[in-house]
Structure formats: structure tokens, C-alpha cells
């Protein structure tokens, strides 16, 4: 029994550590998907470049927590906007397939920038937030887990407030429900798309602060994290901030549980099989991609 508790505690700890990052990635994914029906293959590269920029910042100056958060927000916003202007912003009139492939090209391009500027070796982003390890009774969250979770929960809360209460948030939601009707009401879909990319950039930057100290930043980490974000977003169902975030946390927990109960060999196979299953479940009943 003691061993079972220990297993459970460990699952929760390592599951939530990455689960929070998946959750942040999933939030970015679903923001962009909802506003523009575009699946952004380069989401992981947003995280990568923001993380690397923060890394350079920590090397150059002494960074306190507030400054780090502000820097992450600015950097993420800028990166997201830059990604928008080089992909969707350039290809309104192209077929959705070309837009999708453009994000693939963007992912390569950004990776190339990362290689040129920061090299190929993994870099360790220091812990920027002074959040201690938590242990209550048998439960235990390591410092990294606690920091990731705090950041992810705060981001999700702020995002849901933003979407519900502010004018811009409402504009994004309007465009995501019906682009044409929103335009008739004077909401510019273009601005909403750009804003959703920029916000996705901010969540990715926070994700990089969460994942950097745990696993380091390396030029080829983007695709894997982006994919997990996509699985998490599909798990959460795309329609509510909290559900999407929960999708990430659950994916992290499932993965950790799979490693503990089966083996790491099967983890990837099973989590991708899960993705296919989920996509099918989510789409049953809806015969075709709905038309706006």
C-alpha cells in the first residue's frame, strides 16, 4: 500500500510538471485554431524562441521574477505577432492547406534561426520564479512542478478573464463563432487573428519558463511539445479555456501513469493512439468540417 501511495504521488508530481506545459501549449493551439481554423505546426517553435530569448536575457542581466514575467509577456507577444505576419498574415487568400504548410515552413525557419543564434547544444534556463517545493502529508510537488503549475493556472485564469470581460477578448470569441457575422458587426477578423497569435505567443513564453528549468531548451524540441499541445487541446475539446488546460494536465498525468504502470516504450505509442481515438470521438456526429 505504501508503495502504491508512493507511485501515485510520483505520478502526480511528474505528470503535473509536464502536464502544465502541455496545458499552456494547448491554450495557444486552441486560441489560434478557434479564431482562424488554422492548426499551427510552429507552436512549439514559439516556445523555443521565447525560451532562448529569455535565456540570453538571464545571461546578460540580473533578472528578478517580475521583470522575467514582463519580459516573457513582451517577448511572447512579439514572437506571436511575428509568426502571424509571416504565415497567416501573408496568405489570407491561399487555400487552408497552404496556410497549414506555411506554418510547417515557419517551424523550420524558426528552428533555423534558433540554430544560428543559439547553436545546437541544449541550454538550461534558470528557475526565474522563486516558488518552493510543496509537500503536504504524503503529497509532494517539486519546485519545478510547483512553478509550472502556478504559472499555467494563472495564465489560464487571466486568459479566461480576458476572453470573457474585455472588448478584444469578445472580438476573438465573436470571430471564432462566426467570422462573417463578426465582420458585419464591425469586428476585424484580421485583428482578432493577429491578437490570438500574439496571445498564443505569450502562453508559449510562459511555457518556456516552465519547461526550461526542467528539461533545457534545444533547437529540435518544438515539434514534440507542439504535438503534445495538440493532443491536449483535442482532449480538452477546444471550446473552453479550463477544459483545454485540464486536457494538458490530464495528458501529463496519463503519460506519467503509463510510464509507471507499463513502460516508457509504450508511452508514445499509447498517447498517439489516444489522439486518434479522441479525434474520432470528437468528430462523430459532425460529418464534415463545419463551414463558417
Amino acid at each position: 500500500m505504501a508503495s502504491f501511495t508512493a507511485y501515485a504521488v510520483q505520478t502526480v508530481n511528474s505528470g503535473l510538471a509536464l502536464g502544465s506545459v502541455y496545458g499552456l501549449m494547448a491554450l495557444g493551439f486552441s486560441l489560434i485554431y478557434n479564431s482562424s481554423r488554422l492548426i499551427n505546426f510552429a507552436q512549439g517553435e514559439l516556445l523555443l524562441l521565447c525560451g532562448l530569448t529569455l535565456y540570453s536575457l538571464t545571461q546578460a542581466v540580473q533578472v528578478n521574477p517580475i521583470f522575467a514575467l514582463a519580459a516573457a509577456a513582451v517577448c511572447g507577444y512579439g514572437a506571436g505577432f511575428a509568426m502571424y505576419s509571416t504565415t497567416l498574415g501573408l496568405s489570407f487568400r491561399s487555400s487552408p492547406l497552404r496556410q497549414l504548410m506555411l506554418t510547417v515552413a515557419a517551424s523550420l525557419t524558426w528552428q533555423g534561426v534558433a540554430i544560428l543564434v543559439w547553436g545546437k547544444k541544449p541550454l538550461l534556463l534558470p528557475r526565474l520564479l522563486p516558488i518552493p517545493a510543496v509537500s503536504a502529508g504524503p503529497f509532494y510537488l517539486s519546485a519545478d512542478t510547483a512553478a509550472s503549475l502556478t504559472m499555467a493556472l494563472t495564465a489560464a485564469a487571466l486568459l479566461s478573464l480576458f476572453l470573457a470581460k474585455t472588448r478584444y477578448g469578445r472580438a476573438i470569441r465573436a470571430v471564432s463563432m462566426n467570422s462573417l457575422a463578426a465582420r458585419l458587426q464591425g469586428v476585424s477578423p484580421t485583428n482578432a487573428h493577429a491578437l490570438s497569435f500574439a496571445l498564443a505567443g505569450v502562453t508559449a513564453a510562459l511555457g518556456s519558463m516552465a519547461v526550461g528549468p526542467q528539461t533545457m531548451l534545444r533547437f529540435d524540441m518544438g515539434l514534440g511539445l507542439g504535438l503534445k499541445g495538440f493532443v491536449a487541446a483535442s482532449l480538452g475539446g477546444y471550446d473552453s479555456v479550463w477544459k483545454v488546460f485540464a486536457g494538458g494536465a490530464i495528458l501529463g498525468l496519463i503519460e506519467a501513469a503509463l510510464v509507471l504502470t507499463f513502460s516508457a516504450e509504450l508511452k508514445e505509442t499509447l498517447s498517439y493512439a489516444l489522439l486518434i481515438g479522441l479525434l474520432l470521438l470528437a468528430k462523430t456526429g459532425r460529418s464534415c468540417p463545419e463551414k463558417a
Binding site: 507511485y7 508530481n13 511528474s14 528539461t215 510510464v259 513502460s263 516508457a264 508514445e268
Partner: peptide, 18 residues
């Protein structure tokens, strides 16, 4: 086993220590 591009192996480590 671990995935060399993986990012967290605490679950595996934990199992081994058990």
C-alpha cells in the same frame, strides 16, 4: 528505457529506485 530527446524521466527513475 528513456527517449533520448525526452524531457522528464522521473517516473522511470522512481520505478527503478523502488
Amino acid at each position: 528505457s528513456l527517449d533520448p530527446s525526452g524531457t522528464d524521466f522521473s517516473a522511470q527513475m522512481f520505478k527503478l529506485l523502488e
